[in-house]
Each structure stands twice: as structure tokens, then as C-alpha cells.
């Protein structure tokens, strides 16, 4: 409870400071919209903002789903095959060095304005923390447990299914929480490169048309989206691995 109050207090301080800076004469209204103007924009343009937010949300959700699927397949394959892990790890890291801003327009050129390029970019950013975290989880399973499974005559696949995967679920969720927060940025990049709709596109358009309050309203919505996705991943973790909390009491 105190944590919630503290967060609220920090938020109030931040908004107050924002309002204060925005009210200064030396600050151009076109550069910085005040919280009050942003709220007004949220209210006045709500249906426009909401329609575009839904588009972005679908891109983010589908992109995340793809990253989880790809991340789990990559992590399990790399866990089962040592040569594959050694060979693929550098490429995995290299994939994160790809400048998305440069890649996005190329993808749009190749796949047009549809949802495809957005999903590709979200997935490209998000599969990485999921793969790396899950792989760490799979590799950190108690060696004694693996010995026990071997002595019980368990096949490799059964050990993976009954011991290694459940044991690394908390790691998978850690990766998912990181992915959830950066997924929104991926969708915005995708939309900037070329899109008919979406919050990212709306923000870009608003910027060009000097509708600063609408830009800020869009940013607020994108931020809320990332926070909500993070909270959702945390909740899913609690529901999926209740034992993780029992085992490690605070």
C-alpha cells in the first residue's frame, strides 16, 4: 500500500514539475504541451486516439505472441543442442544490433503498409529478452534434479517437460516483462516507417501538423499501454507459478 502511495506521490511531483516548466514564458507551446492541455486533448480527441490505440495494441499483442513462440522454440533448441547454442548465440546478440530505424522502412518497402512489418519489428525486439532469459532458466536447473531424473530412467524429453520447463517458467516471465515494456516502442517504429493508422502514426502526424497536445496525449497512452502490459505479465507470472513465491518468502 505504501508503495502505491509513493508511486502516486512521485507521479504528482512529476506532473506538477511538468506543468510548472510548461507554464514558463520561455518555453514554446509547440515544444511542450502542459498536462492540462494534454488532458484536454485526451478528452477532445478521445475517439480518434482510441481507434488508433486499438490498432497499435493489436500489433503489440500479436508481436508479443510471436516473440514468445519464437523465443521458446529458440531457447529450447539451443538448450538441447550445445553446438547450436554456441553457433547461434552470437547471431542472436547481433540481431539486437540491427538499427530498427533503418530496417523498418526497408520492411515496409518489402511488405507494404499492412500489419506485417510492425509485427516483424515488435517480434525482432521482443524475442531476444525472452530467449536469453528462458535459456538461462533452462541452464540453471539444479544439477541434482537432472541426476535424479536420469536415475529414474526419464527420457531427455520427459526431463525437459516435467522438470526443466516448469522450473524455468519464472525466467520466461522475467523475459516477457522486459519484452512487454519495449514492445510498444517497436510498434511505434513500425508505424513511423509507414502506416495508415496506429498511435505511432498519429503522434508522427501530430508532430508534423504542430498539434503538440495530441502528440503528448498519444505518448501518455503509449506509456500506459506499456505499463499495463507489464502488469499483465506480472499477474500471469503469479498465476502460473504460485510455488515460486511460496519457495522464496520475502
Amino acid at each position: 500500500m505504501t508503495r502505491v502511495l509513493l508511486t502516486a506521490a512521485l507521479l504528482v511531483v512529476f506532473v506538477a514539475a511538468w506543468q510548472g516548466v510548461a507554464s514558463l514564458d520561455s518555453v514554446d507551446d509547440l515544444t511542450l504541451a502542459s498536462p492540462v492541455e494534454t488532458l484536454d486533448a485526451l478528452r477532445d480527441d478521445w475517439s480518434l486516439l482510441w481507434d488508433n490505440a486499438r490498432v497499435t495494441l493489436v500489433e503489440v499483442a500479436l508481436g508479443l505472441a510471436i516473440s514468445v513462440a519464437v523465443g521458446v522454440v529458440f531457447a529450447v533448441a539451443m538448450h538441447l543442442s550445445r553446438p547450436l547454442r554456441d553457433a547461434a548465440y552470437p547471431l542472436l546478440v547481433a540481431s539486437q544490433a540491427i538499427p530498427i530505424v533503418v530496417l523498418a522502412p526497408i520492411l515496409v518497402l518489402a511488405f507494404d503498409y499492412g500489419i506485417g512489418p510492425k509485427l516483424a519489428i515488435v517480434a525482432l525486439i521482443c524475442f531476444f529478452p525472452i530467449t536469453v532469459n528462458l535459456l538461462d532458466g533452462l541452464r540453471s536447473v539444479e544439477p541434482g534434479l537432472l541426476k535424479l531424473m536420469r536415475s529414474l530412467g526419464a527420457s531427455r524429453l520427459r526431463t525437459l517437460r516435467t522438470v526443466e520447463l516448469p522450473a524455468s517458467l519464472p525466467y520466461l516471465f522475467s523475459g516477457l516483462k522486459i519484452a512487454a515494456t519495449v514492445s510498444v516502442i517497436g510498434a511505434v517504429f513500425g508505424e513511423w516507417a509507414g502506416a495508415d493508422e496506429g498511435l505511432g502514426r498519429l503522434v508522427l502526424l501530430g508532430n508534423n501538423q504542430l498539434q503538440t497536445p495530441r502528440v503528448y496525449a498519444g505518448i501518455v497512452l503509449l506509456t500506459l499501454m506499456a505499463v499495463a502490459l507489464f502488469a499483465l505479465a506480472a499477474l500471469a507470472e503469479r498465476l502460473a507459478c504460485p510455488w515460486n513465491r511460496e519457495e522464496r518468502p520475502e
Partner: peptide
Amino acid sequence: RRAACAYMPQRDLLLPW
């Protein structure tokens, strides 16, 4: 040997889930 032996390690190693 694995098939003939029931091996009990030092710690109980129960699966918490």
C-alpha cells in the same frame, strides 16, 4: 545399473510446483 537401483540423493529434491 540405473534400472536396478533406486537412488535417493542427499536432498529431497521435490518439485515445488
